[in-house]
C-alpha cells in the first residue's frame, strides 16, 4: 500500500496539526452534524415525493392478458435496449441475437468489476488519465442514449 497511511494510525498530535492547517476536521461533532443534516434533507425530499407523486398501482396481474407495451423500470432500460439491438444481429445466424444480447450484459458487469485491474495508472489527475476519462464519459453518454431510446421507442 503506497503512500497513504492508515488514517487511524496517525498520532493525535499530527491530527491536531492537520486540523489547525484546515486539512482535516474532527469527526464529531463537525462531520456527524453534516451527515445528520444531509439525512434530514433526503428524508424531506422522500416524504415530499411520496406525497406529491404517489407510486402508481396498476390493475391486478392477469396471466392470460399481456398488456400492450411492456417495458422494464427505467434503470433496466439501457440493458433492455441492448437486447433489442442484438436482435438485429440475426444475419450471423439464428443463435446470435439472444446469446450476444445476454453476453453483452455479462461482459459489461465483468468489465465494471475489473476496472481497477485494467486501469493500473496510479495517477488521479484528470489530465493524466485521458483514456479512462474519455471511456467513462463515453459509457455515460451511451447509457443515457440507450435509456432514452428504449423509453421513446
Amino acid at each position: 500500500m503506497k503512500k497513504e497511511v492508515e488514517i487511524k494510525k496517525i498520532p493525535i498530535e499530527e491530527k491536531k496539526r492537520l486540523i489547525r492547517e484546515g486539512k482535516m476536521k474532527w469527526f464529531f461533532p463537525g462531520h456527524v452534524v453534516e451527515q445528520v443534516v444531509i439525512c434530514l434533507f433526503i428524508f424531506v425530499i422522500m416524504i415530499t415525493l411520496a406525497t406529491l407523486f404517489p407510486p402508481h398501482l396498476g390493475s391486478m396481474a392477469d396471466p392470460f392478458n399481456t398488456p400492450d407495451h411492456i417495458k422494464p423500470e427505467w434503470y433496466f432500460l439501457a440493458s433492455f435496449q441492448l437486447l433489442i439491438i442484438a436482435e438485429k444481429l440475426d444475419f450471423l445466424g439464428a443463435w446470435a441475437p439472444k446469446i450476444l444480447g445476454v453476453g453483452m450484459q455479462g461482459v459489461i458487469i465483468g468489465i465494471l468489476l475489473m476496472v481497477p485491474f485494467i486501469d493500473r495508472n496510479p495517477d488521479r489527475k484528470y489530465k493524466n488519465r485521458k483514456i479512462a476519462i474519455t471511456l467513462g464519459i463515453l459509457s455515460v453518454i451511451i447509457a443515457i442514449f440507450l435509456t432514452l431510446w428504449a423509453h421513446f421507442s
Binding site: I12, K15, K16, I19, V33, V36
Partner: peptide, 18 residues
Amino acid sequence: AEWEDESLTRRVFIMASL
C-alpha cells in the same frame, strides 16, 4: 482530543436548530 474554542453562540445555535 482537545477542542479548539469555537464561538459558543454559533455552536449553540446550530445544535439548537438541528
